[in-house]
Amino acid sequence: MSDDLTHAVLALDGVSVRIDGRAILDAVDLQFARGTLTALVGPNGAGKSTLLAVASGDLVPAAGRVRLAGADLGDWKARALARERSVLPQDHAVRFGFSVREVVAMGRLPHAPDPAADDRIVEAALGSADVTHLGARDVQTLSGGEASRTAFARVLAQTTPVVFLDEPTAALDLQHQEAVLRIARSLADAGACVIVVLHDLNLAAGHADRIVMLHAGRIAADGRPREVLTRETIEHVYAQPVLVLEHPTRGVPLVVSDDPR
């Protein structure tokens, strides 16, 4: 990435992860700045979720180091870390009978209690994620998309300067996919460092400042959407014929399959 990232809030230096002798991540070096939305893309098994887990502190790498706000990630205390970064994992199921509002309110737990402010933040998060009408519902009764939006609202309520989202659009309909990415974009525009794992290259192109494309645990491309989403790069990484067109209204790359009939 050519942009100046000397003020990076998050840095991965030589990070490697191995499972059963196989390199899931192989000597990855990356930096992430505040005020940016970075999309991690790549085929299944490329290392996207593993990279997110290492960067967020949920997985300790076999080699390398991760620094958050200048300090080694391992030196952070759990409560302080939860005030600095929030994480939306792929598996966000809640297996207890909490209401939607109670789950979202859990995002406030790392912060010093302030009932009035906490209530205001929770209500705003419920509204942003379009789950206000579900506030009293038992989370175990929700559809997949409703549960995903509830988990996203909990992340919003945590109000952290660094936000990790692992496939936040996977269970969502078209309207809510766009809504979640618009909110993620607005968080970045307000100064947060947002890192999101996506499978949809067009969602990445439409909302991210930067795309990091992974392939077999290594960085295949890193840059602005137009720099990364080229026909040559996508076909090499995904082994799938594509056309890369110009989106008619957004002015960003539009990726479509080019399989012969």
Rank of each mutant, 00 (worst) to 15 (best):
S16N: 05
G206K: 09
M213A: 12
V104M: 05
S16F: 01
G251V: 01
P260D: 12
V163R: 07
V212G: 10
T38Q: 04
R218C: 12
T50Q: 11
G74Q: 05
V9W: 01
R67Y: 02
G191D: 13
G35Y: 08
R231T: 11
V100S: 09
I121R: 11
I234E: 00
P113N: 12
G42F: 02
V196K: 04
Q158D: 04
V104D: 03
L88A: 07
A157L: 08
P241F: 09
C193F: 09
E246T: 10
V17R: 08
R154K: 14
G135I: 14
H92M: 12
Q90E: 11
A190S: 14
A216S: 15
A216F: 04
I211Y: 00
A39E: 01
T50D: 06
G145M: 05
A157M: 07
T6Y: 09
G74E: 06
L165G: 04
G74Y: 05
Q175W: 10
V103Y: 09
G21M: 11
T36F: 08
S186Q: 15
T150Q: 04
L198R: 08
G70R: 01
E102G: 02
L52W: 04
L172K: 09
L142I: 03
R67A: 11
R85G: 01
V104E: 02
G217H: 05
V237S: 02
A112F: 11
H176F: 13
H176T: 10
G145K: 02
I183G: 12
D138L: 04
G21T: 06
V17D: 07
G223M: 05
R85N: 04
E123Q: 09
V131M: 01
E232C: 01
T159R: 15
G21W: 03
P241I: 08
T230N: 06
K48A: 09
G206N: 12
R261E: 11
V212A: 05
A62V: 15
V94S: 02
V163D: 09
R185I: 04
L187C: 03
L88D: 04
G14I: 05
E123P: 00
R182E: 15
E232V: 00
L59Y: 05
A82P: 10
L229K: 02
A188N: 10
G57Q: 03
A239T: 14
L203E: 05
S148V: 04
E178K: 13
L165M: 10
A105V: 06
V100Q: 02
L198S: 07
G70A: 07
P168M: 11
D222V: 09
H215F: 12
H247C: 02
G45Y: 07
P115E: 07
Q177Y: 06
V194N: 01
F96T: 14
A125D: 11
